[in-house]
Design a protein around this nucleic acid. Structure first.
Length: 488
DNA sequence: ATGTGC
């Protein structure tokens, strides 16, 4: 980024405090509320002009509440910024596929183990190879499962619950997922044949891009008490799965963007950007999108659940110990790309709003009824993956998040440069060797994937997480260092 | 992110 661009960004926004910057309604015509960026001055310098513009654009949408928000990892996306949070009044507001993103319920889960670094490190390469072989990855990768139409339908309806009941997991798994692993609003009849045919052969596949399957260890504990509640302690090995709804979610988004572009016109909604296509939340078009989106979200939960089962299979064979003995419990599973109908207190009044989190994690506080009973006292686990070779974090949600961000926090590091730029300047094999020298085994479909996802093309996950911690919208519990990574 | 791209 050039010096001029940096200056430009700073001059347009107003500092509220060290981690909060506002885009005034005077920034762009039609803004109904200000934009609000939760970011340090260091990270603000890296926020692109387009991200600010997109945040301001979101602020023009009907029924928006309080602020159009951007998290410290924000970058530009389709219409809405990635790292964005926006809540719309159920009765007067809109719902928009661009506010969720193409990868519906792209998300993260973390599984703990009883293994130590010493158990795993000497055999890391071999273990990663086994995981890579067990979980199909890459663009267009196909599942080992041949799902029937009925099974696909049940997965759209019941998500992780379908997977567990089909033999891919343990009953307790669904209790440790956001929404218990499925959104009840799902209606598979609102999903097109094309989306179905793309989703049918992809259960239990990782996908590509920044999606990964990672063996990690707890290298720092910030909050002993909460870590204990999550079953985490220093030196312990964990497994993180980061992936989404594959071709199914992608097709649902594409289908409904077209439908909602027409609805935008039909309902006379004026948009600064066509990519913000939306419909009144309670309109037929809006509700149909919501029902299809929920089905896509459920597909992603089913996907991560099937992968979890195969990960457990690999570990039990590899270490010749059963799942109970290995202590491979799912800690939690969060959605990073989803819209939800939630109750929030706005200006002292309880209200139902459609909260769009696109590249943002729900961060509900202690005592919230939607937090699983086992975590009720400490708040929802907030899972923030790092980029390849960089630390990931477990945090917990707070009351402050309910007050400031509709119960939301950031979702990860966020790119600083494009895939194309990374491919031009970086060599995958060199990066793989550098990571190996740091004790991190990476197995990918091809070297170019490693170049595209190099640590240097991402913001620091540490910096991003520190902002949400300082703001107290999520508090750090542990830091996880990667040891082995399987990627598409 | 994606049976990757106007």
């Amino acid at each position: 980024m050039t010096e001029t661009a940096k200056k430009d960004v700073r001059s347009l926004v107003t500092k509220v405090n060290d981690y909060t910057w506002d885009i005034p309604v005077s920034y762009e015509s039609g803004m109904r509320v200000p934009g609000r960026i939760f970011v340090s001055s260091k990270l603000l310098a890296g926020i692109e002009q387009e991200t600010l513009d997109q945040t301001a654009n979101v602020a023009t949408l009907p029924g928006i509440q309080k602020y159009a928000m951007a998290m410290p990892d924000a970058h530009s996306g389709y219409g809405f910024p990635i790292g964005g949070v926006a809540a719309f009044d159920r009765d007067t507001g809109i719902i928009s596929p661009g506010g969720v993103g193409y990868d519906i319920n792209c998300g993260v889960r973390i599984i703990r183990t009883n293994l130590t670094i010493e158990d795993v490190r000497p055999r890391m390469r071999e273990l990663v190879e086994q995981l890579f072989q067990a979980v199909p990855s890459g663009v267009g990768s196909k599942s080992k499962i041949r799902a029937s139409d009925k099974e696909l339908n049940d997965a759209f309806l019941y998500g992780a619950k379908w997977a567990v009941e089909s033999g891919y997991g343990m009953k307790e798994d669904t209790e440790h997922c956001e929404e218990n692993g499925f959104m009840k609003a799902a209606d598979p009849s609102k999903v097109s044949d094309k989306a179905r045919s793309r989703g049918k052969p992809q259960f239990g596949t990782l996908g590509s891009g920044n999606h990964f399957l990672e063996v990690q260890y707890v290298d720092e504990v910030y909050d002993e008490e909460t870590a204990k509640v999550f079953g985490l302690h220093k030196g312990q090995v964990t497994v993180m799965i980061h992936c989404g709804s594959r071709g199914a979610g992608h097709q649902i988004c594409e289908d409904y963007l077209k439908i909602l572009e027409r609805a935008t016109h039909k309902y006379g909604i004026i948009l600064p950007d066509k990519q913000l296509a939306c419909a009144p939340a309670e309109s037929t078009e809006g509700q149909n999108y919501f029902k299809a989106m929920a089905a896509g979200a459920n597909y992603a939960w089913a996907n991560r659940q099937v992968i979890t089962h195969w990960v457990r299979e690999v570990f039990t064979k590899f270490f010749r110990r059963d799942v109970d003995d290995l202590g491979m419990h799912l800690i939690y599973d969060v959605a990073h790309n989803v819209a939800k109908l939630e109750e929030h207190t706005i200006d002292g009044e309880k209200k139902m709003v459609y909260v769009h989190r696109k590249g943002a994690t729900r961060a509900f506080p202690p005592e919230h009824p939607d937090v699983p009973a086992v975590y009720r006292k400490v708040g929802q686990p907030v899972l923030i993956p790092g980029s390849m070779g960089t630390p990931s974090f477990v945090l917990h949600g707070t009351q402050k998040a309910m007050e400031l961000t509709f119960g939301s926090a950031c979702h990860g590091a966020g790119r600083t440069s494009s895939r194309a730029a990374a491919l031009k300047t970086l060599n995958g094999e060199t990066i793989q060797k550098e990571l190996a020298a740091r004790g991190i085994s990476v197995r990918a479909t091809q070297p170019s994937v490693i170049a595209e996802e190099a640590p240097s093309v991402y913001k620091s996950s540490e910096d991003v997480v520190d902002v949400v911690h300082q703001l107290d919208i999520a508090r750090k519990v542990v830091r996880l260092m990667p040891m082995g990574v399987a990627k598409g």
